[in-house]
Nucleic acid binder design. Sequence first.
RNA 1: GCCUGGGUGGCGGAAUAGGUAGACGCAAGGGACUUAAAAUCCCUCGGUCCUCGCGGCUGUGCGGGUUCAAGUCCCGCCCUAGGCACCA
Length: 826
Amino acid sequence: MKSYEPHVIEEKWQKIWEDNGAFQVEEDTDKEKYYLLEMFPYPSGKIHMGHVRNYSIGDVVARYKRMRGLNVLHPMGWDAFGMPAENAAIERGIPPAQWTYDNIAYMRTQLKRLGFGYDWRREVATCDVNYYRWEQLIFLKMYEKNLVYRKSSPVNYCIKCQTVLANEQVESGACWRCGEAVIQKELTQWFFAITKFADELYEYCDKLPGWPEKVLSMQKNWIGKSYGVEVNFSIEDGTSLTIFTTRPDTLWGVTFMVLAPEHPQSLELAKGTPQEGEVKAFVEKVAKQDRTFRGEMNTAKEGVFTGRYAINPVNGVKVPVYLGNFVLMEYGTGAIMAVPAHDQRDFEFAKEYGLPIIVTIVPEGQRIDPAAMKEAYVDEGVLVDSAHFDGMKNREAILKIIDYLEEKGLGKRTTNFRLKDWGISRQRYWGNPIPIIYCADCGTVPVPYEDLPVVLPTNLEIKVVGKSPLAEFREFYEVNCPQCGKIARRETDTMDTFVESSWYFLKYTCPDYDDAPLDRKRVDYWMPVDQYIGGIEHAVLHLLYSRFFNRVLNELGFVGVREPFQNLLTQGMVIKDGAKMSKSKGNVVDPDYLIEKYGADTARLFCLFASPPEKDLDWNDKGVEGSFRFLQRVWRLVTAERAEVLEGVEPLFIYDGSDDDLKQLAHMIHKTIKKVTDDIDRFHLNTAIASIMELVNTIYKYLEKDKIDVHSLGLLKGAIETVIILLFPFVPHIAAELWTLSGKGDNRPEGLWPQYDEAYVKEERVMIAVQINGKLRDTCEVERDTEETQLKEIIFNLEKITKHIEGKAIKKMIIIPNKLVNIVCA
RNA sequence: GCCUGGGUGGCGGAAUAGGUAGACGCAAGGGACUUAAAAUCCCUCGGUCCUCGCGGCUGUGCGGGUUCAAGUCCCGCCCUAGGCACCA
């Protein structure tokens, strides 16, 4: 008997696959394509267990689909721009490019040692000029279409990382990367006009049935679409004020108005009133306040009267206009109508400044006394004191009142979004240079297409923390203006690295294409990605950006599809000792160590078996041992148990004789094939493995019977072969080796996923549960599809049943064929 | 506060269309083999009660309900993870 030596066979098969180009694919219109993608890693130095899990799941699906005859694209690459490379340069003096490429080289060998089947010819590293040059071209095309623009605005800034962060990259006031508190800074930045697609990105959430509900709800939350109406209030000085509200049903309850202090009309309004000075002081005070502080909900509501009054257009009531720190300029029109009776914020403000409260919505048949209110009434109800809308349910009233306002020309329906444009400028070195030149005479000038790419220089030193060396590297920034030829300055900010990850999946389809960013023909063959697999942490970052960027590329004609990812699987985190694996927690399990100790197959198997993909995986060293034990058990099944006897035996997969043991084994073969097939299709990889384990257990039990006739041995061999084939996507090395050892030679299982026969999936004899009044009392084994009368006869002869129903009247019997009988007694 | 998930043995987890709750694995306990150990194999393993059985009761976060039958469906709660949040 040969012993199971994972390293020997793993190296052997990895070499064979590499030599054969086993995972290389070409576009082939005769074949059905399947594009399987896992989120590419940042080359931080070593892969971690999260990667092992992610890529193990992906590899199962890729190999399985290939075995089912699909033309599978399964690529891998590197999200290679980013700050750690710069930090390494500063801390250890290694050039970012070298650090990055060294890491890539090592991590590539790690992925190969795990036996993942990628088409490495299609590998993409985003820091490669042949990748980022096309991104610069796309940037310029976007510039022409006004999809990217430059503006000065307050932006999120991380002092530690010394760079700007997009809204999506701030997690509860802290930097997503380092956790440092984020401050606001006024800077001139480049923005991608993602808000132009806000409505579509929101609405398409309902057209992505292959995405987890959770991710879609997070994206919807983030985009924050709200329907409402803009209403014009006239001011006594002759001007007018436009507000946005989602609650026009409360219009008759307006008792004052509030503007954001930054509102352009703020100072204007107060001019010439006794309040002018006070207003000015307030505006200045708020301007100095930290924005994150102001954004906090428990920040006290503060405001000031402008000295002016507005006229409520629906009832002509005169209401005072205030400025308030709780009103945001960035949302809606920066001004609100305040209805203290029905909005908690307005209520608090009204209480603070002694403003009146008018109730216009009440629970049906009840009254609310404004003076007795402790908080705003925000529930549903019917309208009161609202002219001819009285008595209407407020939900319906919203739509009716919007119609009314539009009819009378008092307002117009509007949709507002929480989503802001994507700021992409980063004051960092290791990123894609923004292809723009600033000329004192000509202004902002795009780099001409023929001058692309703007190559990121590597012959400079990075030593100062917090300053991009590009801004001080004359060779880079000093250029002649492409328009007038005078000395000009190149943009020294680089793009957010999320830009690169927004289209890498497209480049995989045609990495060698040199004439344009993408080869439309090949993109069209492969896109969309049929299955995308990655961590939930990118639910609103990468996944939203990619949906946006793919739309841009669609409008530029580079891509045919609108949505890039048809199906999404978000896998859970890898947990150990109750916390996410991290260096600081000291609970990291090193993949290299695992491979060293047990081999890649065991590492893969445990990751897949311990929990379903979308759930968190609780790491358990003993569980890893268990996975290793199982593989050894399978190994022995082929190499030790009956190995000589089975040599040369023709495998059988069906049996129509009368031996119950053989019938049972034939049934198990087909049942397992069906179960594993169905389970992989719905990503229940843990139960797929469990059912293969059951088949193995059944085979061991069968061996104890010691049957040696031709049928028995043939079926035994068939069962063993089935185990090997079914295991192939999960643990490819041992499966390939055992397949060869069981006499299959070069005929590898890669091309053949087994078929099951429904006739054998069904058992001839079935176990019937017998209940009395819904309680299980006994079971009995009968022929499948036993006649009702015959079944009743059997059941009423069961001792336990007769005992229980003795002397009771049987009211009725529920019979579920081949499953259960429930006798209902008085 | 709002929006999503999720609560099942000592543990990870199963139960695809309302039909035998706990598959598979881990841990634990007992046994076989062995001079011994490892490895391997076999048995037990939700709780509880007794008359120890082919037994009874109970049990899927809690309280109700629908149904012949509920982990699964409905109503009301509790806990927990994540997202959003002075967004009008």
